[in-house]
C-alpha cells in the first residue's frame, strides 16, 4: 500500500488551490492585498480607480475598486488535479507540527461564542454542533463547571481505527479529519468515539454554499446528508497560520491553541508556554484512563472568574432547555 503522505511536497499547491478556488467562504474576495501588500504598498495607485458598490458580508453597502473584486461569477472552478493534490495535502497535514488545545475551565461561563463562530465558520446547520458545552458535575459533593468540548483529536483515535473505508484519518500534525465524500455513513466512528464528538447529518443540511466553492476536508463545507461531521481544529485556518475560530471568538480567552513542539499555546491575547501552563495549573486530559491520548488538555476550574450559574443567566430558553438533565454522574 502506498502511503498517501509520500505524495505531498509542501504548501505551494495549496496556494494555487486557493487562487483558483477563490478565497474561502466570503461572498466577495479581494485579491492583491492579502499578505502581499507588505512589499507592494503602492499597489493601490495602480488600480483602475473605478469604484463599484457592493453589499458587504455584513449586509452594508460598500465601495470597492473594480480591480479588487473577483465577482462570484469570475471565480474559476479549480481543476481536478489541483483538487486531488489538495486532498492529498489535507490527508498529510502540516509538516513538523503537532497541534494541541488547552481549555481553561476557570474562565468559561457558557458565553457560547465558540459555538456560534464554529457554526458560522463551517456553515453548519442548526442541531449539528461540533463544539458543545457541557455542565458537568462529577459528584453531588463536588461543584459544577462548564466544559467546552471540541473534538479531542486523539493520538490513538478509536474513530479512525474502526472506519471501514478510511474516510476519517489521522494526520501527522495530530488532526483527525473526515472526508465526507468518502464517508459511507455507517456511524461506527460515532459509537467508537467515547467523547460524543461526532455528529451525523440526519437530513439534507440545506447549506447555502458560496458559488465556486470546492469541497475541502479541512473545512468540511458543505455538510452532506448521510455523513458524519465533527470539529476539524480549523485545519484551513492553521494552514494560513491563523488560530481556530473558537479560539479567536472566545471573549474570555478560555481556549488556548498552539504547536506543542514549540511548547507554546495562545488564546489570541496571552501566549504561554504549554509545559508551564500544565505544571502551574495542573492540566489534565479528560478520561485519560481510556487511553485514546487526546490532543485537548483542560485546566481545572480553580479560582474561577465567574460563578457557574452565570452561564445560564442571559441565555435563551432554548439553550436553558439543553441543561435540564444536569446532575452528578
Amino acid at each position: 500500500m502506498k502511503d498517501e503522505a509520500e505524495n505531498v511536497s509542501d504548501g505551494s499547491s495549496r496556494r494555487n488551490f486557493l487562487k483558483k478556488v477563490g478565497v474561502g467562504v466570503g461572498a466577495i474576495s479581494v485579491t492583491g492585498i492579502v499578505g502581499s501588500s507588505l512589499l507592494k504598498g503602492n499597489e493601490a495607485k495602480a488600480k483602475s480607480g473605478k469604484l463599484v458598490k457592493l453589499l458587504s458580508p455584513e449586509g452594508k453597502l460598500v465601495e470597492v475598486d473594480q480591480d479588487d473584486i473577483k465577482s462570484a461569477k469570475g471565480i474559476q472552478p479549480a481543476d481536478n488535479e489541483t483538487v486531488e493534490q489538495h486532498k492529498l495535502e489535507a490527508r498529510a497535514g502540516l509538516p513538523n507540527r503537532k497541534f494541541a488545545m488547552v481549555i481553561d475551565l476557570a474562565r468559561c461561563k457558557n458565553a457560547r461564542k465558540c459555538v456560534e463562530a464554529c457554526q458560522e465558520g463551517h456553515l453548519l446547520p442548526k442541531d449539528h454542533e461540533w463544539m458543545r458545552l457541557y455542565l458537568l458535575q462529577d459528584d453531588s459533593t463536588t461543584s459544577k463547571y462548564w466544559f467546552p468540548r471540541p473534538c479531542f483529536h486523539c493520538d490513538k483515535p478509536m474513530c479512525v481505527s474502526v472506519c471501514p473505508v478510511g474516510a476519517t484519518y489521522k494526520r501527522a500534525d495530530g488532526i483527525v479529519l473526515i472526508d465526507n465524500q468518502r464517508c459511507i455513513g455507517c456511524k461506527f466512528c460515532m459509537t467508537g468515539c467515547p467523547f460524543s464528538a461526532r455528529v451525523f447529518n440526519w437530513k439534507d443540511p440545506e447549506v447555502k454554499v458560496p458559488e465556486g466553492h470546492v469541497y475541502d476536508p479541512e473545512t468540511n463545507i458543505p455538510a452532506t446528508e448521510g455523513t458524519v461531521g465533527k470539529c476539524v481544529f480549523c485545519a484551513d485556518k492553521l494552514r494560513l497560520g491563523e488560530l481556530p475560530r473558537c479560539v479567536s471568538a472566545c471573549p474570555m480567552g478560555v481556549i488556548y491553541f498552539g504547536d506543542i513542539l514549540e511548547d507554546t499555546v495562545t488564546n489570541g491575547n496571552e501566549t504561554e508556554r504549554f509545559s508551564k501552563l500544565m505544571t502551574d495549573r495542573a492540566g489534565y486530559r479528560y478520561r485519560e484512563e481510556l487511553g485514546t491520548l487526546p490532543s485537548v488538555y483542560y485546566l481545572p476550574p480553580t479560582q474561577r472568574m465567574f460563578p457557574v450559574e452565570s452561564g445560564l443567566e442571559d441565555t435563551d430558553k432554548s439553550i436553558k432547555d439543553r441543561y435540564k438533565k444536569v446532575g452528578p454522574r
Binding site: C163, P164, G166, R182, I184, C186, K187, G226
Partner: peptide
C-alpha cells in the same frame, strides 16, 4: 442503517482491515 447507500461499494474500493466492519 447506512447513511450513504450509494457509496456501499467503497467498502470494497477502500477497505481498511483494521475495521471490524471490514
Amino acid at each position: 442503517c447506512i447513511g450513504r447507500l450509494d457509496r456501499l461499494h467503497f467498502l470494497f474500493l477502500y477497505p481498511r482491515i483494521q475495521s471490524p466492519i471490514t
